[in-house]
């Protein structure tokens, strides 16, 4: 009977990436996000631009041509100086969800890629429900075709369809992809990077490029615990899933220990890099449910203010 059961399981259709249960989780996350950040969030996000808003931002010296209505007469009465009141301009926040679709994300059972897409959908939903503009784009060897920024919760279905349609594969050219993204994006905003950061050219240049161009990178590193503990024994040929480069190795306990050190060192380097540059960094294990990961994202801050 166990044999039959196994065969029946194998005949089951793959679960839908975004099923009803996932949608329910999104609603739950939306509520949680609103409660957790009600004190500091009104559902909108203010930009740092000074403009015609109602929220006082600062004073500056009066310059000829300024609107007299903005002169702060109380200050002039006390200090005898003409200062103009500045107000923060309220504008829509753009949230860009960049999903790594390289081959390293689908090694094994595609868990990292599926997790990335679910997290991307969840984050997009949170953003859309906050009346932000959300955009999604895959990247691997280059930046893929993106979903144009949209607003409103109803856009989540477009986001999901877009994410489901992404075909994984190829190498990871992180810097080139980020450069392409920067060049193609006029409005700055929050860039959520969903990736394992197994970039052949490194991740540092790409993140810096985003920073230098006034984007706010939000690093969400997807890890698979099996990557840290490979079940390899004896003589094998390691083949890089992205480049196809082979490398003969004989595994011993010492080799595996060295690899574990290298793996943890890599993760630590990424985390240190982000902290040093005040970038939000969340490490998301594929073993953890999406909702738990989202709570970690919320706790980490930087995504919802």
């Amino acid at each position: 009977m166990a044999w039959f059961r196994r065969r029946d399981e194998s005949r089951q259709t793959p679960r839908e990436l975004f099923d009803d249960a996932f949608m329910a989780k999104l609603e739950y996350l939306d509520v949680v996000a609103k409660k957790a950040f009600a004190a500091r969030s009104r559902g909108e996000r203010r930009s740092k631009k000074i403009g015609s808003g109602v929220e006082f931002a600062d004073h500056r010296r009066y310059s000829p041509g300024d609107d007299f209505r903005h002169i702060d007469w109380n200050v002039y009465a006390r200090l005898g100086k003409l200062l103009v009141r500045l107000y923060e301009e309220e504008e829509d926040l753009h949230v860009y969800v960049l999903v790594d679709s390289s081959a390293s994300m689908v090694v094994g059972d595609r868990q990292k890629f599926d997790h990335a897409r679910k997290l991307g959908a969840a984050l997009a939903y949170i953003a859309l429900s906050s009346m932000e503009r959300a955009s999604v784009a895959p990247f691997s060897a280059a930046l893929g075709q993106r979903l144009l920024p949209a607003r409103g919760k109803s856009q989540i279905f477009r986001v999901m369809s877009f994410l489901k349609a992404i075909e994984p594969g190829g190498t990871t050219a992180f810097a080139d992809s980020m450069k392409s993204f920067v060049h193609q994006t006029k409005r700055r905003g929050l860039v959520v990077l969903l990736s394992d950061f197994y970039a052949q050219d490194g991740y540092e240049e790409g993140l810096n490029y985003l920073r230098y161009n006034r984007f706010e990178p939000f690093v969400l590193q997807l890890i698979d615990p099996r990557d840290a503990e490979p079940s390899l024994r004896g003589d094998v040929t390691l083949v890089d899933c992205e480049t196809g480069v082979g490398r003969d190795m004989t595994f011993s306990a010492r080799t595996l220990a060295a690899y574990r050190d290298a793996y943890h060192g890599f993760n630590q380097e990424l985390e240190s890099f982000c902290h040093a540059r005040r970038l939000s960094h969340v490490r998301a294990s594929v073993r953890e449910p999406v909702e738990d990961l989202m709570l970690n994202v919320f706790r980490a801050g930087g995504f919802v203010r």
Binding site: P230, V236, T237, D240
Partner: peptide, 23 residues
């Protein structure tokens, strides 16, 4: 026959490069 190595696909070979270089 044992000398014929098994091919194993890994997500990020640069990590292994450090180990291999050491050995």
């Amino acid at each position: 026959l044992k000398l014929r190595r098994r091919r194993v696909e890994v997500p990020y070979s640069p990590l292994w490069a450090r180990v291999v270089d050491e050995r």
